[in-house]
Computed example of a mutant assay.
Amino acid sequence: MKNSLSFLLENLEDEWGKEITLKRNDFLINKGDLNTNLYLVKEGSLRVFIDDDEEHTIRFGYKDSIITAFDCFLTEKPTSFYIQALKKCSLKVISKINFIHFINSEKEYQDVWNIFLNDFMYQQIEREIDLITYSPQKRFERVFKRSPQVFQEILKNILRLI
């Protein structure tokens, strides 16, 4: 089966609601928010982080990626995360209710969503292994190998400042 995210995005095209724009450093979601929407990043980049006396970035969102406060999306309880624009962003929005209705409308969509969730879980496991097992240098090498787009986005932002 083709890439699960690509398949979902193609089939969700008509389901997205409004489009929103964030300026650089604007927050999409703040700790304590009850926001179960899913967002499709059309342009720009965002970071998901926690702040417990020190900021820790959990993941990034880039063009054509889906981003949400997954803890809130899954449990419908206030989130522990912040989601902040690293640069100007354009995002499409779908509510959890509309998304679940869409996913449940066809078995194939349910299967693809499960593949997407499995991929997400595997990424989280890889991150945990990195944090527990490897030196900072080795973690850097593994992240670069797994997610070169992180470094491409950082480089783009640096070049824009020069």
Rank of each mutant, 00 (worst) to 15 (best):
F99A: 00
F73T: 00
D33N: 14
S90Y: 07
L117C: 05
E43A: 10
L28C: 01
N37V: 04
R59F: 12
F27Q: 01
K88M: 04
I67Y: 02
K145S: 12
S4C: 08
D119A: 01
K87I: 10
K88T: 14
I83F: 02
I129T: 10
V112T: 12
I132M: 11
L9K: 05
D119R: 04
N3L: 04
G17C: 03
L38N: 07
E141N: 12
D51H: 13
Y82R: 03
F60P: 01
M121V: 08
N104F: 11
G17H: 03
W113I: 13
D14H: 14
Q123K: 13
I97E: 13
A85R: 01
N3T: 07
I97H: 05
K88C: 03
L38V: 06
L12N: 06
D130L: 07
N11Y: 11
S6G: 04
W16S: 00
L91P: 09
L34P: 03
I129S: 02
R146H: 05
F7K: 00
K107N: 13
S135H: 07
I66G: 01
F151D: 00
S135K: 04
N104A: 10
S6D: 03
E13F: 03
K23A: 08
I125M: 02
K23T: 08
Y134W: 06
D71P: 06
W113N: 04
L12A: 05
T57D: 00
Q110G: 04
D111I: 11
E126F: 12
L28Q: 06
P136I: 10
H56Y: 10
N25G: 04
S90M: 12
D52R: 14
G32C: 03
K145R: 10
F7M: 00
L40T: 07
E153D: 11
N98V: 04
L5T: 14
I103Y: 07
L38K: 08
N25W: 09
R142F: 14
H56F: 10
H56M: 08
I67E: 00
I50L: 11
M1C: 10
K138E: 15
F27M: 03
L86W: 01
F70V: 15
K87A: 05
L74P: 06
V41Y: 05
T21A: 12
Y62R: 05
I29D: 01
K145Y: 06
D64F: 11
S6F: 03
N37S: 15
G61H: 00
C89M: 10
K23M: 09
W113Q: 13
S6N: 09
V48N: 07
D64M: 11
I50F: 02
Y109F: 15
L28N: 00
Q123W: 07
L9A: 05
I29T: 00
D33T: 09
D130P: 04
R139M: 05
L5P: 03
V143Y: 15
S80W: 08
Y39P: 04
L131P: 06
I158E: 15
I97L: 08
V41T: 02
R139I: 15
